[in-house]
Amino acid sequence: MLNLDHPMAKHIFAAAQMEDFLLVSAQRMTLVPSTERLAILVDCHQALDEMRRLNHEQFSASQFISDAIADAQESLEQIANLGGGNITENKVDGEGDCASCGSAITKFETYPQSDRYVIVCHQCVRPFMQAKSKLQSSQGFRTCFI
């Protein structure tokens, strides 16, 4: 568990906020047309740059974190370019199969009876999830302790 009085706590929470932004972005990219994926990727690059700054300024320029950020960037670019940049279908409603890999789109409520859903192609988002695990780890930003 994270000690909220620890001087690094605010930086760990800042990293968690960026990780969550990238997760939501990666999930959305699995559902939208290629042109929208590229627009989302621009916002992701800004968040990745902020992560690099945070790593440099608050996490002693950790090589592990730097490598994990690079992995996250590579995976997000991979998701953005699925289908060779030719995906035109929009699956944000969660209906049907993924326009890129053909897997079933997953749609589940975040809380029972909340009318809020997470909609994602789990197959296409998988590379980002591996990178996110590194970012969250005890060697990374330590957001796993939140």
Results as ranks from 00 to 15, higher is better:
residue 25 S to G: 04
residue 107 K to G: 09
residue 39 A to T: 15
residue 46 Q to G: 11
residue 35 T to V: 12
residue 109 E to I: 01
residue 25 S to K: 07
residue 66 S to G: 09
residue 91 K to M: 09
residue 125 V to S: 13
residue 51 M to N: 01
residue 71 D to Q: 13
residue 115 D to G: 01
residue 8 M to Y: 09
residue 73 Q to Y: 00
residue 27 Q to C: 08
residue 103 S to A: 14
residue 16 A to L: 05
residue 49 D to M: 14
residue 116 R to P: 00
residue 96 G to C: 08
residue 124 C to V: 13
residue 110 T to V: 03
residue 46 Q to L: 13
residue 24 V to K: 09
residue 55 N to F: 10
residue 121 C to S: 12
residue 98 C to H: 08
residue 40 I to C: 14
residue 76 L to P: 02
residue 90 N to R: 02
residue 118 V to K: 04
residue 21 F to L: 08
residue 101 C to S: 11
residue 84 G to Q: 04
residue 118 V to G: 05
residue 8 M to G: 08
residue 62 S to W: 02
residue 88 T to E: 02
residue 31 L to P: 02
residue 74 E to S: 12
residue 44 C to H: 15
residue 73 Q to C: 06
residue 111 Y to W: 05
residue 111 Y to T: 00
residue 91 K to Y: 03
residue 121 C to P: 12
residue 20 D to C: 06
residue 8 M to A: 11
residue 99 A to W: 13
residue 73 Q to V: 05
residue 62 S to M: 00
residue 92 V to S: 04
residue 10 K to W: 10
residue 84 G to P: 03
residue 17 Q to W: 09
residue 115 D to P: 00
residue 60 S to V: 10
residue 37 R to L: 11
residue 83 G to I: 14
residue 8 M to P: 07
residue 75 S to C: 12
residue 65 I to W: 05
residue 114 S to C: 01
residue 108 F to L: 09
residue 36 E to G: 11
residue 91 K to F: 02
residue 50 E to F: 11
residue 70 A to E: 13
residue 18 M to A: 06
residue 125 V to I: 14
residue 118 V to H: 02
residue 51 M to G: 03
residue 46 Q to V: 14
residue 35 T to L: 08
residue 72 A to L: 06
residue 117 Y to E: 00
residue 33 P to A: 01
residue 56 H to A: 09
residue 90 N to Q: 00
residue 111 Y to E: 02
residue 13 F to K: 12
residue 55 N to E: 04
residue 64 F to C: 02
residue 106 T to P: 03
residue 74 E to H: 13
residue 31 L to N: 01
residue 112 P to L: 07
residue 67 D to Y: 11
residue 34 S to W: 06
residue 93 D to Y: 02
residue 8 M to H: 10
residue 126 R to F: 13
residue 26 A to E: 06
residue 45 H to C: 13
residue 114 S to I: 05
residue 71 D to W: 13
residue 16 A to K: 08
residue 44 C to F: 14
residue 66 S to W: 09
residue 38 L to F: 10
residue 95 E to R: 03
residue 128 F to L: 12
residue 125 V to T: 15
